[in-house]
Write a protein that binds this DNA or RNA. Structure first.
Length: 699
DNA sequence: GTGGCGTCC
DNA sequence: CAGAGGGACGCCACT
């Protein structure tokens, strides 16, 4: 490791396997040197315990450590053999044929597409401008096909280029590599090319290695892992108002940029993949979960979902009228006009003009106007309730009814979200442009928006979701016999646990008892404290503590598991899901209590949330393969963490529903049954609400 | 760009 | 004694 670097003046061990060649006492926390060195060590593949470092050296004095930094920096630069990529720009058929011949022989083809994003809100309206390839470090090809500025050189016709490449790109046996290759798959699919043999993605390699420890975009990774500063998109296309589309970028400049992207991706793969392969479980997560999921997500995104925009527009109009009426009432109650949407102005009205009591503050110390606070203030004054009502409508209108219609792709008439596979630290997906994972469901008003997610005529939607998956995983991972038995019994889990906790027969569990235990059950998953539970249940802290004590007395296995998890996190610096996906917790040993406690809660939650994410990803892979083979007319169209939504011909979908749910339950065999509930309907709300059919080992 | 808030699981 | 519920994304106001 670093210990054999000659520049060390003094070695300090900060973890068993890491020694930093520094005089730590010389470091001043918060100074750029600390961050700089942290970045340098990361670049060398070491994990720095920055918080630990900062926490333990919060003292006066010290001097910069630029010398050590400079020396490290220059060593790294010396190692950067990838400084410049040799570029071949393919402008004639002869060069194209030569390139295709070379690609065909390669063990691994790195590919990248350059596009002209016409309108980011209307995903899908992207035009292919060029393709780049690399098969050996230090070299890349660029095939321009869509540069259209005045005086642009003659380029090969796109049809010709794609037809020559098609067989290769669609060949399952020719392994492909990319950086965020789902994007390229989606672009090429619009040109009739179904990319197959997608073997590696550097973004996912980086994500599996350390989801939260560093960024997974190519520019950052090149700097960190190769010590190489890449040509950025802004370098070639400009920025701000003067930014041009890629089609307007000079072919020479574009070629340097694009060929480098393919080359650097290949070089990153050569660095990152061995690191993944070093840990068998991580290799497994990459190769059996993340990589097979890529084409599945691409398909789900391409499928899209049909949204009734006329319906949303009607709701929008109605919400507008009701908001206006509420606003008038608010002005009357407040004794003047103000912007209802401004927390600052509202805070002045409530606490300064109306002199209502300050029940809670924001993290910044300002009097809070959050929902739970306004709900309490509503007992003393009309205004808070009116604000709450207005806020509900305002939220629905601005976030959903006004924006979703704008996200409809004019070519397909459907909404195509984008799933981010390397964002959430725990392994979950996230959804954006637009986010389809936060469509309202809780209130009747909100569910009207779900009703606008529809199936085309003759088709229906099927919603299947895992029942209580995270709590089931708590039972499995902890091995707690009582919790396991409760799930095996098949009864309402909150009721069953309440019966255990309060020592009463199932049928004697009161609504209040069930509510309390349900709150604990959810709180468990998040590492909640007695304080949090008290707030949740609106009881005293003492009462909440008593509930928790009783709970843990009955579920000792759960308690032991939580203690064990915190302990292993402290010892190894990370926690794992059932499949070995890791989450590093750099603050787990911090002396800063809030930071450490936050890390401890994450340690409890991440294995549960992350294993659930692993399971549904496996289910998506499995179901996609099944549908492709046996029911191509049924489409997977959405994923919402523990729910999958399908669209298909009414009768066929109804026929398949039980077996799809059943397959979801069989992706893993746990010590408790995995159960999935499903429902059918003409719209998402109906499908979700009609859930009641269950599938699982007990059914 | 940040903070506050609110939607989902 | 402060802070005491995990993971996201998006909208608005404000700077």
């Amino acid at each position: 490791g670093l210990s054999n670097l000659p520049l060390a003046r003094k070695l300090v061990t900060i973890r068993d396997d890491i020694e930093l060649p520094l005089d730590f006492d010389a470091l001043v926390p918060g100074k750029p040197d600390v961050a700089r060195l942290a970045a340098l060590y990361q670049r060398l593949g070491f994990k720095t315990w920055l918080e630990e470092l900062e926490g333990s050296h919060a003292r006066e004095g010290g001097h910069p450590v630029s010398e050590a930094g400079d020396e490290l920096d220059s060593r790294l630069r010396g190692n950067d053999k990838s400084a410049k990529t040799r570029v071949d720009t393919v402008l004639d058929e002869k060069a194209l044929d030569a390139m295709v011949a070379r690609l065909s022989k390669a063990k691994l083809i790195c590919l990248d597409t350059e596009t002209d994003a016409l309108d980011s809100m209307q995903a899908g309206l992207v035009g292919l401008v060029g393709l780049s390839f690399a098969v050996e470090a230090g070299h890349g090809w660029y095939v321009p096909v869509g540069h259209n500025y005045l005086g642009a050189p003659q380029q090969l016709p796109m049809d010709l280029v794609l037809s020559r490449l098609k067989a290769l790109l669609q060949d399952e046996k020719k392994p492909k590599l990319g950086q965020h290759i789902k994007y390229d798959i989606n672009v090429l699919s619009r040109y009739g090319i179904a990319v197959k043999g997608v073997a590696f993605d550097t973004m996912l390699e980086s994500y599996v290695l350390d989801a939260a420890g560093w960024r997974h975009d190519m520019d950052s990774m090149a700097e960190q892992h190769l010590g190489h500063k890449t040509i950025t998109f802004e370098d070639v296309a400009g920025k701000g108002k003067t930014q041009v589309s890629f089609a307007q970028v000079a072919v020479d400049k574009a070629a340097e940029y694009a060929a480098e992207d393919a080359d650097i991706t290949l070089r990153l793969h050569q660095v990152l993949y061995p690191k993944v392969a070093e840990v068998p479980a991580l290799k497994n997560v990459l190769e059996t979960i993340e990589m097979p999921l890529v084409p599945v997500l691409a398909r789900v995104e391409q499928n899209g979902v049909l949204v009734d925009s006329a319906m949303l527009k009607r709701i929008s109009h109605e919400l507008g009228l009701r908001m206006e009426a509420l606003q008038k009432e608010c002005f009357k109650e407040a004794g003047g006009e103000f912007n209802l949407g401004s927390p600052l102005q509202l805070q002045q009205i409530l606490y300064e003009r109306l002199k209502l009591p300050v029940l809670a503050k924001t993290p910044k110390g300002q009097p809070s106007t959050a929902e739970d606070v306004l709900a309490q203030l509503a007992e003393q004054h009309q205004l808070p309730k009116l604000i709450l009502d207005w806020r509900e409508l305002s939220k629905l209108r601005s976030t959903y009814t006004e924006s979703l219609p704008l996200a409809i792709n004019p070519q397909t008439g459907r909404i195509h979200t984008s799933y981010a596979q390397a964002v959430a630290a725990t392994g979950r997906l996230s959804s954006n442009d637009p986010n389809l994972q936060n469509i309202p469901v809780r209130t009747e008003e909100g569910r009207r928006i779900r009703q606008a997610f529809v199936a085309p005529a003759g088709r229906q939607l099927l919603s299947i979701d895992y029942s209580q998956i995270e709590l089931r995983l708590m039972a499995h991972l902890s091995g707690d016999p009582r919790l396991t038995r409760a799930f095996k019994s098949g009864h309402d889990i909150h009721k069953a646990t309440a019966a255990e906790v309060f020592g009463v027969p199932l049928e004697n569990v009161s609504a209040e008892q069930r509510r309390a235990v349900k709150a604990i059950n959810f709180g468990l998953i998040y590492g909640m404290s007695a304080f949090g539970l008290a707030k949740q249940l609106d009881v005293s802290r003492g009462e909440a503590q008593a509930y928790m004590d009783t709970f843990f007395a009955r579920y000792e296995g759960v308690k032991a598991y939580m203690d064990r998890t915190r302990e292993t996190a402290r010892e190894q610096g990370y926690v794992e899901t059932l499949f070995g996906r890791r989450l590093y917790l750099p603050n787990i040993r911090s002396k800063n209590a809030p930071l450490r406690q936050y890390a401890e809660r994450t340690a409890i939650n991440a294995p549960l949330q992350g294993t659930a994410a692993d399971l549904i990803k496996l289910a998506m892979i499995e179901l996609h393969a099944f549908l492709e083979r046996d029911a191509p007319e049924v489409l997977m169209i959405m994923q919402v963490h523990d729910e999958l939504v399908f669209e298909g011909p009414q009768r066929r979908l109804a026929e398949l529903a039980p077996s799809l749910a059943d397959r979801m339950c069989r992706v893993a065999r746990l010590s408790v049954p995995l159960v999935a509930d499903w429902g059918l309907g003409a719209n998402w709300d109906a499908a979700h609400t009609s859930q009641g059919h269950a599938s699982g080992p007990n059914q």
